[in-house]
Design a binder for these strands. Structure first.
Lengths: 125, 125
DNA sequence: TTAACATATGAGCAATTGTTCATATGAACA
DNA sequence: TGTTCATATGAACAATTGCTCATATGTTAA
């Protein structure tokens, strides 16, 4: 028994079967990773964080983050495609804002983890 | 006024100042991005998802995900360093489990976003 | 229409990342 | 002690990513 993927013999087959049955579909987990990937960049996190406070145009964000308009525009595209921001045009100016109530929750849960005091065992790592 | 970062003149200075004051420290946002980066990989998401169901040894995970022991071990290292999993040794075997109550919340909030029906405007993108 | 401007986008490049392969570590047992 | 086995780790390589630069798009005003 056991695939070629692990050389070991002590695989706990019954536990594996149980876990396999309970796990979400592969596709959902893939999408989930794709979503978190979007949150996994400092620039994008900053943009999201800024949009919590106010609707902003591309130039505002560029100015705020001290980055080029192009760089911001590229990242806004990623955020748009992930359905995290929406935009509203007013003449030449495009205003961006957050598009989802879940975003703040995801964000805050993440912050809770970050701010949690580190246990003893981790001080050693 | 305005830095060299954005060529535009219509920057909303007052809004920018307000947002700048309200935003979390740069360092916290960096750490947050680092955390989400860990969630932003299919293999790691699968590992976390599996550990929701049961404590597993490295070989179990490798078998479950049809991946090599080495690949899994490398990823467990990343998860350990992000304080997302903890390990327990029993002889030669190392059992991994989740290390944080927040993880499930982050995960579930992400799933809510994924599962949300897409709005009309996004069908066009 | 033409000029000016706000934003979007494609190509290119450097930096980062995830896997594989080979090997090291460290525990159990003969 | 030496062997076996479960896991960890370093180097190398391919794939991905985020930025820059140049330019395209689309809107406003002269």
């Amino acid at each position: 028994m056991g695939d070629e993927f692990c050389s070991c013999d002590i695989v706990h087959e019954n536990v594996i079967e149980m876990v396999k049955k309970k796990m979400p579909q592969e596709e959902k987990l893939y999408d989930l990773a794709e979503l978190f990937k979007v949150f996994g960049d400092t620039t994008r996190v900053k943009i999201i964080s800024a949009l919590f406070e106010a609707e902003l145009c591309v130039c505002d964000i560029a100015e705020l983050l001290h980055m080029t308009q192009s760089a911001i525009s590229h990242q806004l595209r990623v955020l748009r495609q992930a359905r995290l921001v929406k935009h509203r045009k007013e003449g030449k100016v495009v205003f961006y804002s957050l598009d989802d109530e879940h975003i703040k929750n995801i964000f805050n849960q993440g912050l809770k983890h970050i701010l949690e005091p580190r246990g003893f065992e981790y001080a050693l790592q």
